[in-house]
Computed example of a mutant assay.
Amino acid sequence: MNARRPSLADVARRAAVSTQTVSRVANGRTNVDAATRERVQQAMAELGYRPNRAARALKAGRFHAIGVITSYLTSFGMMRTLDEIVQAASAAGYSITLLPITATSGGVSGAIDRLSEQAVDGIIVTVEPHLLEGAEVTLPGDVPIVVVNTGAGTGLNLVDSDQEGGARLATRHLLDLGHAAVWHLAGPGESASAAHRTRGWAATLREAGLEPPPVLTGDWTAESGYRHGRGLAGRRDVTAVFAANDQLALGLIQALHEAGRAVPDEVSVVGFDDTPESPYFWPPLTTVRQDFTEIGRTAIALLLQQLEAPDPAPGRERLIPTSLVVRQSTAAPPRSVFHVT
């Protein structure tokens, strides 16, 4: 049979103080003199007393726990972001309850309902925005929520990379090298991230007085990039391609190599994400770097800010800047495509 756990009253008797004094020491209050505090702490140590954190949480109305809903567990970027969310939460004294879901709005709604009924102080949602637009998804008004993704509508606290800005950097880089056209391998149509990147690419071309070529839609995979790359490889007018992620770029480069199109001598390729493998592509990939660590850190900071000072009308958006990492997959277009007059 397990022995009875020592209680607050047991500590009070051992230290010859009131239970109120023990409570003050256990909760870190400062209105206890040093000698008394030391005596109470010694009694706690001798008895093996541990404060009942669940009871303290109920009393304080704070559980020091954060729920995270995600459907991205296979994504490089989201794994990096989740890692930072866990570390930043831990540094702030919070634990994480992770709820992986299927990519449906019903899955999001059910996960939010489950977490709302559990002992969490706030929720971070990392799913595609279109999953939050379903009629059955109701966000609770009494639990702060931060969404990691732009394009999720108004009235929400949002954190994401500057997806459109990153696409502009990639497209402008290729134009500055002298390419007369930049093709685009896009992500899936339902992806908000893909839409932002396509928008930035198209806007940059139009601002330069160029009509964007037809968008080629993929599914984030290297196999999808390879499939579209086989078609692009046969077009001699294609000298520059911006791929919506590094995996699409990888498949594209393989297809170009197989068709005898040299990268970057004949075709320049830019990716997006700066995955750990991108410096080891052949050639090493020029790509847009997202600061996934800062995204996770900002998501936690925004949630904690809501916990400390609840905003009755949330709707703040934090865009984390992206940057271009130039490697050896981009160069000026081949001289044969220059139009000399």
Rank of each mutant, 00 (worst) to 15 (best):
R5I: 09
V11W: 13
S18P: 11
T19A: 15
T21M: 13
A26R: 12
A26G: 11
G28K: 04
T30Y: 06
D33S: 11
D33E: 12
D33M: 02
Q41S: 04
A43Y: 03
A43G: 05
E46G: 02
L47I: 11
R50A: 15
R53F: 10
A54V: 15
A55E: 11
R56N: 09
G61N: 12
G67D: 12
I69L: 12
Y72E: 15
L73Y: 12
T74R: 13
T74H: 13
F76L: 10
M78T: 14
T81K: 07
Q87H: 13
A88E: 15
A92Q: 09
P100D: 03
P100C: 04
S105G: 14
S105F: 06
I124N: 03
V125M: 04
E128N: 06
E128D: 14
H130G: 01
L131E: 04
L131T: 03
G134T: 04
P144A: 12
P144M: 13
A152M: 09
A152K: 05
G153Q: 09
T154Q: 14
L156Q: 08
D160I: 05
D160S: 14
D160T: 06
Q163G: 15
E164R: 15
G178A: 05
H179R: 10
A181P: 05
A186M: 08
A192N: 08
H196V: 04
T198K: 13
G200Q: 04
P214N: 09
T217K: 04
T221K: 06
Y226M: 01
G234F: 00
V238P: 05
V238K: 03
A240M: 05
L248G: 04
L250A: 15
L250E: 08
I253V: 14
Q254Y: 09
A259E: 10
G260S: 05
R261G: 08
V263G: 02
D265T: 10
V267R: 05
V267T: 09
V267W: 05
G271C: 02
P276R: 01
P283I: 09
L285V: 01
T286C: 00
T286G: 01
R289T: 01
Q290P: 00
T293P: 00
T293H: 14
E294W: 01
I295D: 03
T298H: 02
L302N: 00
Q305E: 15
P321H: 00
L324T: 00
R327T: 02
Q328H: 13
A332C: 08
S336Y: 10
F338P: 00
V340C: 01
